[in-house]
């Protein structure tokens, strides 16, 4: 049972980086790829319909951690305190940029585009540092050179993934770049999956008791096809055609 929930955790983690990874990367690259306001609108329009369905994978990761590995959740989050706070603040700023950039007067849009870019870059940097801290066994002060280096590496990786996604989507979701997008998605997920694999033994030893895991399984497994179906529906609906404009 704990193996099933560890695999669920790993799948969610891989899915988060493969999917939300391109939103983060594209957000960080926004001023580079979109030199004009119109170009930025198109880039945001490309990723906008995916963001809500993508970012929620991390909420699910936190939920699984709390439900199936509660002891670990308290341990890991509290040891990573400053990094998790930085991650959350970056996430909030990124989301605010997305949600508000078209809701305010046009003169304010550069401010929200700046929030989108800064928040996205902050998310990538925080993730790199968090994964590095987990690899090093949760050191007391995770803000150091290796953490920063890992953050920069993560930023570069996700930026590449975001750029690949934009190229694929803005060419109408078809053509040879589909394979490139799959490749960059796997690459974006790889570091987190490797870290989770390395931590597998520790996680399995800290799972919730069988009674709790059984309850979770009984409730979640029947609904799992709906979760997957909803995600597939998003991709079928928004992979091609004109770009929606709400964000």
């Amino acid at each position: 049972m704990e193996i099933f929930w560890f695999l669920t955790f790993a799948v969610l983690l891989a899915g988060y980086f493969a999917l939300e990874g391109f939103d983060i990367g594209l957000g960080a690259l926004l001023p580079v790829l979109g030199r004009t306001p119109a170009a930025r609108d198109r880039l945001v329009g490309a990723m906008a319909p995916f963001v809500l369905a993508n970012e929620v994978w991390l909420v699910a990761i936190a939920g699984v951690l709390f439900g199936a590995f509660p002891a670990l959740e308290g341990q890991a989050l509290s040891r990573l305190y400053p990094l998790v706070v930085a991650l959350l603040l970056a996430w909030i700023v990124r989301d605010a940029g997305l949600w508000f950039r078209r809701r305010t007067a046009a003169s304010w849009r550069p401010v929200w585009d700046g929030a989108l870019t800064a928040g996205s870059a902050g998310l990538a940097l925080a993730w790199g540092a968090i994964l590095m801290a987990v690899v090093r066994g949760l050191p007391a002060s995770p803000f150091d050179l290796p953490g920063l280096a890992a953050g920069v590496a993560m930023l570069a990786l996700l930026a590449w993934h975001g750029r690949t996604f934009a190229a694929w989507r803005l060419r109408n979701g078809t053509g040879g770049t589909g394979r490139a997008l799959l490749l960059s998605a796997c690459a974006a997920a790889a570091p987190a999956v490797l870290v989770a694999a390395a931590a597998a033994g520790h996680m399995l030893g800290n799972a919730a008791p069988d009674q709790t895991l059984t309850v979770l399984s009984v409730m979640v497994v029947p609904v799992a096809p709906i979760l997957v179906g909803a995600q597939v529906w998003v991709w079928r609906t928004f992979s091609k055609g004109a770009l929606p404009t709400f964000f």
Binding site: L52, E55, V59, G63, G67, V220, I226, A230, V234, T237
Partner: peptide, 21 residues
Amino acid sequence: GAPLALETLLAFFLESTFLGL
């Protein structure tokens, strides 16, 4: 942790996805 996990998986995950749609 169980109800919180169920909230994220059974409720919020779907809510966010369907709201995007």
